[in-house]
């Protein structure tokens, strides 16, 4: 057999591999991306738009002092079985039993450019100090945290991506009181179009957990979207 003859099967093999690889690559690039599985449940406090169903976006928040348009308004005071009234207070820990999560919570403010100043450690969650305290009978209690960091890996709120509707979420406040919530909905919003109601909602009572999601831009070390989980008092 000549050396040229021995190359023939190799060439055929290369062509076959080229076709297979090229086809797989083209399919991956051209096939429509899987429908986002992030959006589930019904957002608590969201008002359906007149004549149609709202998609994703919660209701715009009413001006200060106006009654809630949904009529949910202020809930009556909650009492422990012992009779002592449960007071709202600043959250100090976030527990999500289904995900085996127990994360410390610290207050977070504006970092100077209109963005929330999140704790650097993705294992710690920030509570927006302009939002309602844990267990408040109206308004949104807003917690946010890094989904990950280049140094520390996945963060506490990475569990939000797969949390099912109905999952129990507990906030422990500075007095040690536990405030239970139930996961109601999850939405993904482009960061550039985060509805103001997510951070400043006056409906409720509800708990809003915010982290990052969607495609990652390695050049800017940044995610495209905000992933938002809504929960209601259990």
């Amino acid at each position: 057999m000549t050396p040229a003859g021995s190359r023939a099967p190799l060439a055929v093999l290369l062509v076959a591999l080229a076709v297979a690889s090229g086809t797989a690559g083209a399919l991956l690039l051209t096939a429509a991306p899987a429908a986002p599985s992030t959006d589930i449940g019904r957002i608590p406090g969201a008002t359906p738009a007149p004549g149609g169903v709202r998609r994703g976006g919660p209701a715009p928040s009413p001006p200060v002092g106006e009654p809630s348009p949904t009529g949910t308004g202020r809930r009556p005071p909650v009492h422990r079985p012992g009779g002592r009234r449960i007071e709202p207070a600043a959250p100090r820990a976030l527990l999500i039993g289904a995900a085996g999560l127990r994360a410390p919570v610290v207050p977070s403010g504006d970092r100077g450019d209109g963005q929330l100043a999140l704790p650097e450690d993705p294992g710690t969650v920030g509570w927006w100090v302009g939002s309602a305290p844990a267990g408040d009978r109206r308004g949104s209690t807003v917690l946010a945290g890094h989904v990950d960091s280049a140094r520390a890996g996945l963060g506490a709120l990475a569990v939000l991506r797969t949390l099912p509707v109905g999952a129990r979420i507990v906030l422990v406040d500075t007095f040690g009181t536990r405030h239970p919530y139930r996961m109601a909905a999850r939405r993904s919003y482009p960061k550039t179009a985060l509805p103001p109601d997510v951070l400043h909602g006056r409906d409720g009572p509800r708990l809003v957990l915010v982290t990052c999601g969607g495609p990652f831009d390695p050049a800017r070390h940044s995610y495209r979207d905000n992933l938002v989980v809504y929960a209601v008092p259990a």
Binding site: Q115, L116, A144, L157, L194
Partner: peptide
């Protein structure tokens, strides 16, 4: 907690930049 809150109490917030690692990126 009150002290930590007071130290954070400036301005108003409109966004959340919450990830820099890329480990949680979707498919």
């Amino acid at each position: 907690m009150h002290l930590d809150m007071l130290e954070q109490a400036t301005g108003s917030v409109g966004g959340v930049a919450a990830g820099s690692g890329g480990q949680a990126a979707t498919r």
